[in-house]
Computed example of a mutant assay.
Amino acid sequence: MAVALAELVPSLPVGRGWRYEIKVDGHRTVLWRLADSVRLQARSGRDVTAVWGDLAVSGLELPPGVVLDGEAVVVVGDRISFGAAQSRAASRPARARELAERYPALFIVWDLLAGPGGVDLRGRPYVERRGAMLDVLAGLPSGSPVQAVSATDDVEVARAWYASLHDIGVEGVVAKLATSTYRAGRSSAWRKARHAETVDAVVVGFTGPPLRPRTLAVRLPDGRTALSQRLSAPLAAEVGAHLVASPVSGRGRTDAGEAFTVTGPGVVVEVLAGTTRHAVVTVTRLR
């Protein structure tokens, strides 16, 4: 399932027809309730059922045919922890089960792509999909980790969320037109305002082996190409799973003259905004 993506904007849009949802800090996940099982898919399309097995078990409570889009998150203490979600996503199945016992995951749902019986809802407006999603989730047992994202049609409430919830792991707010359908790829009908510590960059290459890259060559928003600092082991494993599926096309050099292996664009990573003024950037996560 190719997922819909929001356009990054500096501030929330205002006007008739906008709806607002909190943007939690986790891993984008699509949940498929099949006839007798559950499948979980990462944004890339990769099967991640084994690492989010606790969510797969909870998904069995959903009607067959349902497909949900949302975010797999892990709460540590009283904060949504992206680091904990990253550790889970990069773990082998046995280790993921151990982590799930310590810190069970939540699946924060924001869209219903198919209803009971597999009825495709992607062509219907957001407000209709939202209502149908709430009806489906209302049938889950009390305390289910599969939960609806908080949403409002009041921009002042959305601004309060943006201003006050960052410390508990809410990284911003997404605005969606009430009439918008679910379209794969990036669309101005969905817009996200994130806290300004990070920006998105396109991966154009890497150093080291593709399965475990040491650093990434990224194209920054201002058009420059730069080499990142060394990746952490979990992040290298996650990015590497995408790089091995992309063809390489020779060697390239950054604006500073550093060599790297060129790969097809398409992978997007988040980098610390404060580092983009320099020749080396810090990658914080896969987008």
Rank of each mutant, 00 (worst) to 15 (best):
M1H: 02
V9N: 01
Y20K: 03
I22R: 12
I22Q: 09
D25G: 03
H27Q: 09
T29I: 15
T29N: 12
L31S: 03
W32H: 15
L34E: 13
A35G: 09
Q41D: 04
R43W: 06
D54M: 04
D54G: 02
L55R: 08
V66I: 12
V67R: 07
L68Y: 07
E71M: 05
V73D: 05
V75W: 07
I80W: 05
G83V: 06
R88E: 06
A90C: 06
A94F: 04
A96H: 02
R97T: 13
R97G: 08
E101N: 00
L106G: 06
I108Y: 11
D111H: 13
G115Y: 08
V119K: 10
D120G: 00
R122K: 15
R124A: 04
R124G: 00
P125K: 02
P125L: 08
A132N: 07
M133H: 03
M133I: 03
L137I: 10
G139R: 12
L140D: 04
S142K: 10
P145A: 03
A148C: 04
V149Q: 00
S150G: 07
D153K: 06
V155P: 07
E156W: 00
A158T: 02
A160V: 15
A160H: 11
Y162I: 00
H166Q: 13
D167F: 02
V170T: 11
V174P: 05
V174R: 10
K176Q: 07
A184P: 14
K192M: 13
A196D: 14
E197N: 07
T198E: 12
T198I: 07
A201K: 00
V204M: 08
T215P: 00
T215V: 01
L216A: 09
L216C: 07
A217C: 02
V218W: 09
Q229R: 14
A233G: 08
P234C: 03
L235Y: 09
L235N: 01
G240Q: 06
A241T: 03
V244Y: 02
V244M: 05
V244S: 11
P247I: 08
V248L: 10
G252H: 08
G257R: 11
A259R: 13
G266N: 09
V271G: 06
V271K: 03
L272H: 09
A273G: 14
A273E: 11
A273H: 14
G274I: 02
V281Q: 06
T282G: 00
R285N: 05
